[in-house]
């Protein structure tokens, strides 16, 4: 089990890279409205399934400021697009977005367009806020509930402890899918994006806390027997006051758990949208975008629609890099268990 106190050696380069990526992603998500060239719901005329526009700096005439060639629809049914290499559309900075096409009728599609002609890049960028936001909120909720529950069980001890942990195990085994389904059926038909966001975070927290509770309980139980806890108790601190002294010991574990929960919940977001509790149109989220890309026809004809999968990979990869030290055996057990019980 991880000890929370030791800060350990300095960060490895891998960790630095991981953190840098995470910071970049977080910044990107926060600044998405200023980065995205288009609004998430904008359906561009004649751009359904349009491939990415390649940004170039060089053509036969030599080097230029970044530009792209205009795209034209040549065969709608066969989804063929041509590029007009005679004209250059320069990119401009500012004008509502970090990078933007200088011609209003020639949209910049860095990652192509989806089946409705919406800019995939903008949707991935804007979707990061919803997908990462709900995941983080859900994970934090799970940590909070789990830590409180685990600590309570450890301190209560004895029969209460046994029953509490049995309850945690039960929640762990209960497939969250049913919860989602019943919840969806009982709720009003129309849920706003904000409603869905909060509900999903709540659901994630309610489904994932037992992992945390198990670990926290074990750590707290051990720590309570250590000298400093005994000392605190001897100094007259009550049973519950001692917990306040002991809880910091779970910090390392909680950090490691966060690194496991975020990927699990990211894939849960995708799974939940299959079951009808996803974000409503036209709100972009990585899960709902992947749901559309998840068939062979789309994959082969418009592979750029897999961009959210790449985004998911980058986030999880960066997390793995950043948390390289945290991967211990105990954590691994929990990661498998969390994979198993989430509807993914």
């Amino acid at each position: 089990m991880m000890r929370g106190h030791d800060t350990g050696p300095a960060m490895t380069p891998a960790q630095r890279v991981g953190r840098a990526i995470l910071v970049a992603v977080a910044l990107g998500a926060l600044l998405a409205p200023w980065i995205a060239p288009h609004r998430a719901g904008d359906q561009l005329t004649d751009r359904a399934y349009a491939p990415p526009t390649r940004v170039r700096v060089h053509d036969a005439a030599g080097f230029h400021a970044p530009f792209f060639y205009p795209q034209t629809l040549t065969d709608r049914l066969r989804r063929q697009f041509g590029v007009d290499t005679a004209t250059r559309v320069p990119l401009v900075i500012g004008r509502g977005a970090l990078l933007q096409s200088s011609a209003g009728d020639q949209p910049l599609l860095l990652l192509g367009a989806d089946s409705l002609g919406r800019d995939v890049f903008s949707r991935v960028a804007l979707g990061a806020r919803w997908s990462l936001g709900v995941t983080l909120l859900g994970a934090l909720g799970a940590l909070l509930i789990g830590a409180m529950f685990g600590a309570f069980a450890a301190v209560a001890g004895g029969r209460a402890d046994a029953w509490l942990m049995r309850f945690a195990d039960f929640v762990l085994v209960l497939p969250a899918v049913y919860l989602v389904l019943v919840l969806r059926a009982l709720l009003p038909a129309v849920l706003s994006t904000a409603d869905v966001f909060l509900l999903m975070a709540l659901l994630f927290a309610l489904a994932a806390w037992p992992h945390v509770a198990r670990g926290v309980r074990a750590i707290v139980a051990v720590e309570l027997r250590r000298d400093y806890a005994e000392a605190a108790r001897a100094a007259g601190a009550g049973r519950w006051r001692v917990v306040a002294h002991v809880l910091p010991a779970t910090r390392g574990f909680l950090a490691a758990e966060m690194i496991l929960l975020v990927p699990a919940l990211l894939s849960a977001e995708a799974a939940v949208s299959y079951l009808g509790l996803g974000f409503p149109e036209p709100t972009p989220s990585w899960g709902t975008m992947l749901q559309e890309a998840a068939n062979v026809r789309v994959l082969t004809e418009a592979p750029w629609m897999l961009a959210p999968a790449a985004a998911l990979f980058i986030v999880v990869f960066a997390l793995q890099l950043a948390g390289a030290r945290a991967s211990t055996r105990a954590v691994f057990f929990d990661s498998l268990a969390s994979h198993a019980s989430d509807p993914s």
């Binding site: 894939s267 592979p303 990979f313 999880v316 997390l319 993914s344």
Partner: peptide
């Protein structure tokens, strides 16, 4: 770092 969804989609592609 490959989530099940991502892995399945990537392999399918």
């Amino acid at each position: 770092s490959i989530l099940p969804v991502v892995g399945a989609l990537a392999l399918l592609l």
